[in-house]
Design a protein around this nucleic acid. Structure first.
Lengths: 223, 223
DNA sequence: ACAAAAGTGTTCGAGTTACACCCATGG
DNA sequence: CCATGGGTGTAACTCGAACACTTTTGT
């Protein structure tokens, strides 16, 4: 590619860093934001928890790697998940103790409906406030992803990805409050959300408990 | 790292994608936004223009790779440049025709003063409106970086990175107008910028032409 | 009838936009 | 003295924040 390489062949023979994809998979359980982790069954970091990850194979597009990580590590159908590339971690040469590895980090949002549907989920879910001991630099990665998620969600509208097909405005508001970790004003929230014209009133009601039933909505953009 | 690998050793022996860093280096020349490119002297894409890039060596932190790309390809002192990671391109397996390559893209801002100072600049500068034929997927990368630059600059204040040490408010406004490709209101611009308290009136004046001289400012954050 | 969550408008302040004239200088 | 860009304030509007009561249901 460049005159700075002594020999053209070097690009084929040079010792290369490994490249991996790690996915920070968020969902909401019991009104708390959770991250999906798996317990390592090998060294290094045997017994510690880790983000679902996978080395990028030579003939694998990176999004495919991300999807395979979710599927193989977590038994989750990746087509039911929203995900987006976040950042490449590759500054620290010893992030991985085995081999120099650059990690492309994706974050993903899984809705609660999907989570309960897929019986074969292999993840263990941890509240973002009570994370276990983590392998590699995965703690920093999660912190970074979390800060980013908060920032984005405040300005865009993709919290829908965490919701089931049908939901009430109060449920949606709870999701926002959980992620942002702050109370929101009901009237302002509804005004703002409805002005986006992303929700469809599906003319159904959800009755639960001794109070007025809530209108059900669904997100207009189909997945 | 994972039970999905048949043998532990595979991570050492498996055929790996190559990882490169490419830098989209912006500057402003003649009131137009320009990108720094170099002409390829080898196949593939011999004679086409390309972003300064470099393969990530096994023991090179990725920011170091980015800096080396600027230095070796462009003869530019990377410490005089502001840069930030943008996105990893690795979806298309044939981006690079020689070897499967994942590219970590950085964008960088070079101020005009630096540009003129460094006599050994090896870049050719192209207006973002008149780009030449580009190698690989570098056209898409530049488009992506440009959209991102516009978005960020409208909400943050790092256009300072494109300015010389001392500049007038009109010059700064021109930089914003050039990047955003739209006229801004002089009074509103000044009000907004000065309220950020990032500028220091250095009590000097710049006289040029038959009109009132302009006050010179400098950016408070030192580089 | 009462408890419990759903649903609904208005006011206030802050920040953004639009807009026009005088100032200082060189030629 | 005039042409040129430098420099300044105010009014209108928009957007987000604060805030309280009525409605509908189950028990």
């Amino acid at each position: 590619m460049t005159p700075t390489l002594p020999f053209l062949d070097e690009i084929y023979t040079a010792k290369k860093p490994a490249i991996a994809v790690d996915v920070v998979l968020f969902t909401i359980k019991n009104d708390e934001l959770h991250v999906g982790l798996t317990k390592r069954e090998e060294e290094p970091f045997l017994g510690k928890y880790a983000l679902p990850g996978r080395f990028v194979r030579y003939d694998e597009p990176i999004e495919t790697t991300a999807k395979l990580a979710l599927q193989l590590k977590g038994g989750i159908n990746p087509e039911t998940v929203f995900f987006e590339q976040l950042y490449a971690f590759g500054q620290d040469l010893n992030r991985d103790t085995r081999i120099r590895t650059i990690s492309l980090v994706y974050y993903a949002l899984l809705n609660i409906e999907q989570l309960n549907k897929s019986g074969k989920n292999k993840f263990q879910w941890f509240s973002t406030y009570k994370l276990p001991l983590l392998a590699f630099d995965h703690k920093q990665i999660i912190d970074y992803a979390l800060a980013n998620l908060r920032e984005k969600i405040a300005h865009s509208a993709f919290a829908f990805q965490l919701m089931p097909q049908e939901f009430t405005l109060t449920e949606l508001q709870n999701a926002y409050e959980t992620i942002l970790d702050q109370k929101l004003d009901k009237r302002n929230f509804r005004k703002k959300i409805l002005e986006l014209h992303l929700l469809k009133d599906i003319k159904k009601q959800k009755s639960e408990g001794a109070h007025r039933p809530a209108a059900l909505y669904s997100f207009i953009r189909k997945r």
